[in-house]
Design a protein around this nucleic acid. Structure first.
Lengths: 317, 317
DNA sequence: TAAATTTGCGTAATCACTTACGTAATTAAT
DNA sequence: ATTAATTACGTAAGTGATTACGCAAATTTA
């Protein structure tokens, strides 16, 4: 297929499907050649039953083993039973189960298939010797890769990384005032309600944060402010990380992490030894972000905010 | 999938199918992630249309390019047209054709997909870097292999070779008399009718062939006689290859070839310089077997057999 | 120039799976 | 000891491809 040389890797799925369909079609002809009355789709079930257990295997056992869904196995078993190759038996201790066993006729098929399986195996192995890249092993590796981390997850990570490269962390400017307020109001009102303290800091960031020796970083994505985070000086010379907010529409770009990193660096450069923060355990993603940044839970001084039920800190030395 | 480590290579088809199904499922989720309103199955068609030709592409053009059947393309195009991503136009010079073109809406999708395609490609390429065996290239190689020679053909060859190892070529014994006659009668009566000469040779092989210095080989498969072939001395000191017969049930085991080889060797050891035979062009497989054995067409002396319309010979020196 | 064959493509049926859903049996939680 | 959740499995419907078939247009052959 020349076509797939042009599309590139993203057509991997389509390409695989085409190849597998070709092979299944050939398989049917091969069963014919050996006059084995077995449909290719039965093969995994049949093979699973060869490993004979006295009591047979339940539908779910087989499904799990061969990696199909149970309705698929159920249907295949019904078809095989109609041909007399398997017998079904209700579970004695567990009445829901349906134990499937190869019948004598099924056992006879096994004999007949023996030669076929050998021929097919040699044919495929000979073909494989003509290739440089081992399809069999490659499939195995991909099954493993996808089990570890789905393709979706892999693409999500790629997206996140690309987008976070497009995120700029900049110092707060007067023109960010409105965005700073809105971003914070948004998350506070979705989870809690605005408190007295919030209004002070959000309406007058210059007076309440910057002029007191604090700092504010803004995150810009495609030029638009989509995140904010403040450093507020504490009495002991350290800083509190506060007013961290990211627009919901800009989630998944690693913006919180970038803002956090910027703040940590700033605090360190200001000679702080610790970074402190207050949050709420309801905010799971936030807490896990703080963990990722290196914060850990501490028992701190009482907070002026009602919504605070967890306090964390990060040692900078 | 542990299971497929037990089944061995013959489950290659089943295994491929499972992997491709997993990937297609993931693909759908990925389109969702980028909010691209495109079904994974549309991808090959869509991609083919990106390579824009002013006039569009006909259904068959697309089908051939992406390696699907035309009904599949036809249906996908219908679905895409319903969403407004493509426009259809009847052929002007050829009224049967249906030219498909990406609509402006389709063009817009292309823009939107650009980033997604890049992310997916990098994700897959990164995953591929974690593997030792290149799935992409392996698939390409297999597509090529199967195009050259189908899996069925490969298995057939394997079967033939294995079975021909189980074929024994033995000298004629009195106990083979009946088989010798029946094997020959069978093919003669299916194609022609028995002639005077046939009865002589088949009823009394000893007198008409062996005692005159000729020779007969029998082919045994699983102990049963399934083929025969005679060498009849000619006046010029050479031999005629005749009475070659193989049971229809034993076709495809290379028996004819083995019998032919045995006869050729015998003739050579008897000091013959040429081997001669008479046949009929209706018997295509036989003629091609003779060619494979090295015979070529000649104009020989008139034959006593009515059914003879081709004469061949093989030089032994 | 008429008849036969080939080609393009749409519709319907089929295939080998899947999800969705329902029922009954078993196990866990309150 | 109920109630709730889980598990086993069957049936029905859906999915993305395929073959089978039929019609009409175009091309080849007689």
């Amino acid at each position: 297929m020349d076509f797939y040389n042009k599309t590139g890797k993203m057509a991997l799925g389509s390409r695989l499907r085409r190849l597998s369909e070709q092979m299944t079609e050939q398989a049917a002809a091969i069963y014919d050649l050996y006059q084995v009355d077995l449909q290719p789709k039965w093969f995994p079930v049949f093979y699973s039953l060869l490993e004979q257990e006295e009591t047979g295997k339940s539908i779910m056992d087989i499904a799990r083993e061969i990696g199909h869904t149970h309705p698929s196995v159920s249907q295949i078993v019904r078809e095989m039973a109609a041909k007399g190759y398997v017998t079904e038996r209700k579970g004695e201790t567990d009445g829901r189960k349906n134990f499937v066993l190869l019948s004598p006729a099924g056992q006879a098929l096994r004999q007949k298939m023996q030669v076929q399986l050998e021929d097919v195996t040699t044919a495929i192995e000979k073909a494989m010797n003509e290739t440089h890249h081992d399809l069999w092993k490659a499939i195995g590796e991909w099954e493993f890769l996808l089990e570890q981390k789905s393709l979706l997850r892999r693409v999500q990570e790629e997206k996140k990384q690309r987008e976070s490269n497009e995120v700029q962390i900049v110092d707060f400017l007067p023109e960010h005032s409105l965005a700073f307020k809105q971003l914070n109001e948004e998350w506070i009102t979705t989870w809690f309600k605005m408190e007295e303290e919030d209004h002070h800091a959000l309406d007058h960031p210059k007076e309440h944060i910057l002029d007191k020796g604090g700092h504010i970083y803004m995150a810009l994505y495609q030029g638009q402010p989509v995140g904010a985070c403040g450093l507020i000086p504490m009495e002991d010379g350290n800083f509190e990380l506060a007013k961290m907010a990211v627009a919901p529409s800009a989630k998944g770009k690693g913006i919180g992490f970038l803002l956090g990193q910027a703040c940590i660096e700033k605090a360190r450069s200001q000679g702080a030894q610790k970074l402190y923060l207050e949050s709420n355990t309801k905010l799971k993603p936030a807490i896990s972000l703080y963990h990722k940044l290196g914060f850990h839970k501490v028992a701190g001084p009482p907070s002026p905010y009602e919504r605070c039920n967890i306090q964390m800190e990060l040692r900078l030395d």
